[in-house]
Simulated scan of single mutants.
Amino acid sequence: MPTALITGITGQDGLYLSELLLAKGYDVHGVVRGQNNPKRELVRRLLPDVRLHNGDLTDLSSLMRALRDSRPDEVYNLGAVSFVAYSWENAFVTSDVTAHGVLNVLEAVRLHEDDAGSVRFYQASSSEMFGKVAEVPQHERTLLWPRSPYGVSKVYGHYMTINYRESYGMHASSGILFNHESPRRGPEFVTRKISQAVARIKLGLQDELVLGNLDAQRDWGFAGDYVEAMWLMLQQPVGDDYVIATGETHSIRDFLDIAFAHVGIDDWTPYVRQDPRFMRPAEVDQLVGDASKARDVLGWKPRVSFGDLVAMMVDADLEATQQGW
């Protein structure tokens, strides 16, 4: 059976990708940072067939051990400090993990290949690399103009992946994924912050939802759809870069409209307050992707609509809140 090693396996993408690969008959391994990582038990509970290895993106030797012990055919680098707002507060840590961590994984794979043969590599790039967008929609050749330490770090990892592909002949692909959400999204992200608040407001447990910019526009898809694109990239004859997106753009206001309407609240304005503290120092106003290359080459397209995604997240948080999870 094929073997895959996933960094960032405790995040939403890592969990969905693990489920996909297990269903395809893979032997799945994951790198987890810290022996007492509280998310380790989550992976063991949801994915008991996954084998976990201690490792850290900032520690090359630990990554080499994980590769030696798992001997993967495919490596998916999903690990990162991925919360944009946090990257402004901790730019150094973000750069160390999200930028230099990619170099560490690439170098570990390159050195491992000398002993074990070819390994296919996937890098989780991001639409945040486009930042102050030079054109709409954005595609694989659009100018990268990041507007946050997170975006800058992702650009570094993206170009480092291209350099290893071109310099060493590695089968290395970057998925430039636009925003993708799910009930497994971290509560610090605005989409999950909204779905949790809507559930609590509906149940009478919360009175107010405080947000930043309501007019920012994003291209939102379902994480479960997007991990399939990751896998498809590594099944191609050669590595390449692909934008993964729905091609639709929606504002935070659109998300609020659907989320509140789903629980029977037609006017959300009495419950939502804007606070300058939640505004980004440099905003990314409109992100919308052109995924025609992924559609033509990979045969990939999103399945879950924006409205269904929002309803899915609200329903999951309603159930979790009612059950006291």
Results as ranks from 00 to 15, higher is better:
218 R>I: 14
302 P>I: 09
112 H>V: 07
92 F>R: 13
160 M>N: 10
247 G>H: 12
312 M>C: 14
34 G>Y: 00
85 A>P: 04
265 I>A: 04
105 V>E: 00
202 K>S: 14
280 R>S: 07
274 Q>K: 10
72 P>W: 06
202 K>P: 00
20 L>A: 03
206 Q>R: 14
279 M>V: 13
35 Q>F: 14
316 A>E: 12
213 N>D: 15
231 W>K: 07
56 D>I: 04
17 L>W: 03
50 V>N: 04
273 R>Y: 11
171 H>M: 09
297 V>E: 14
215 D>I: 04
246 T>M: 07
128 E>T: 08
268 W>R: 00
9 I>G: 01
174 S>D: 08
179 N>V: 14
302 P>C: 08
265 I>S: 10
161 T>G: 05
124 A>D: 04
299 G>N: 08
70 S>A: 14
158 H>S: 09
126 S>M: 02
66 A>S: 11
101 G>Y: 01
92 F>M: 08
200 R>H: 13
174 S>K: 01
247 G>T: 02
260 F>R: 05
110 R>Y: 12
41 E>N: 10
320 A>V: 04
210 V>T: 15
224 G>N: 06
225 D>T: 07
6 I>Y: 05
13 D>N: 07
124 A>P: 02
22 L>K: 13
101 G>V: 04
285 D>L: 14
188 E>W: 13
252 I>T: 12
122 Y>S: 06
135 E>N: 11
250 H>C: 09
209 L>F: 09
304 V>M: 12
248 E>V: 15
292 S>T: 15
106 L>F: 03
199 A>G: 08
196 Q>D: 15
320 A>W: 09
227 V>G: 02
9 I>S: 06
240 D>T: 03
89 E>Y: 11
108 A>L: 06
66 A>K: 01
127 S>H: 11
275 D>E: 01
293 K>F: 01
298 L>Y: 05
290 D>N: 15
183 P>A: 09
88 W>A: 06
305 S>P: 00
243 V>D: 05
138 Q>S: 15
299 G>F: 00
118 S>E: 15
319 E>W: 06
90 N>R: 14
143 L>P: 03
317 D>R: 05
116 A>P: 03
208 E>R: 12
108 A>P: 12
93 V>S: 12
74 E>M: 12
224 G>F: 02
242 Y>L: 13
318 L>D: 02
302 P>T: 12
260 F>D: 07
226 Y>I: 04
120 R>I: 01
215 D>A: 09
111 L>D: 14
115 D>L: 12
246 T>C: 07
14 G>H: 11
199 A>Y: 07
315 D>S: 10
69 D>L: 13
32 V>S: 07
299 G>R: 04
